[in-house]
């Protein structure tokens, strides 16, 4: 849930990158760190083990300050995908404002995607969040690989869900990462604006919200 502290006019939001192990969550975050150029961007904290697998989580803070003085923060987290880290996943997931589910497009990984999605449903339930109302984007990553499930087939399969259309990406090559993030910002904005009147009180309308938080290098972020 959004964490608003009126004394320093600070609104902190939490977005969690969820998904099976090795689907590319950390890579998504690393790409965002290097591609994004929002007004404010912190250090990417990567907490990994020796073999490069996420142990606790990765975290990237970004933010903007509105003319009204609102200090808007977005903390982007990844969870460890490996089965044994479920309690860490739950801890990171709690109080999330939005979720990016990073699925692996490879044909051989479809079972793992389903298991991870089921685990997301369970854990959202346990931390008191509702998967049907929580802003969420489903990304199918690794589109650059040869043995991937056909996009049309994936889109058709997910067409009846609240998460259509799916986002396609190759985090390794940096394509589709920002688009995924923007889609999430778009879904996130609705609820936040309803609760905090971002447009009315802070002159942050939808496109400002998305544009300023996802501004990339070489693009004017004004």
């Amino acid at each position: 849930m959004p964490d608003f502290s009126p004394e320093d006019n600070k609104l902190a939001l939490k977005v969690v990158f969820y998904g099976p192990a090795l689907s590319g969550k950390t890579t998504n975050l690393m790409q965002l760190h290097s591609l994004l150029n929002p007004e404010r961007k912190g250090e990417l904290m990567v907490l990994e083990t020796r073999d490069d697998r996420t142990l606790f989580f990765d975290m990237l803070p970004i933010g903007l300050r509105s003319h009204s003085g609102l200090d808007l923060r977005l903390k982007l987290y990844t969870v460890p995908g490996q089965v044994q880290h479920d309690s860490t996943r739950k801890a990171v997931l709690s109080r999330a404002d939005g979720v990016v589910f990073v699925a692996d497009s490879q044909v051989a990984q479809q079972d793992n995607n389903a298991i991870a999605f089921g685990n997301l449903e369970d854990n959202l339930d346990k931390v008191g969040l509702d998967i049907d109302t929580l802003p969420m984007v489903v990304q199918f990553n690794k589109r650059d690989l040869p043995a991937v499930v056909d996009e049309a087939e994936l889109q058709a399969r997910w067409a009846g869900t609240p998460w259509a259309p799916l986002a396609m990406a190759s985090a390794l090559q940096g394509t589709g990462v920002i688009e995924t993030f923007q889609a999430l910002l778009d879904r996130l904005y609705t609820g936040i604006d309803a609760e905090f009147d971002l447009a009315g009180k802070h002159s942050i309308d939808r496109s400002t919200f998305i544009g300023r938080l996802s501004a990339s290098h070489g693009v004017d972020d004004a």
Binding site: M45, L47, L55, F56, F57, M59, T88, A91, V92
Partner: peptide
């Protein structure tokens, strides 16, 4: 980093 890891 250490603090966060220790906390979680």
């Amino acid at each position: 980093k250490y603090r966060l890891a220790a906390n979680i």
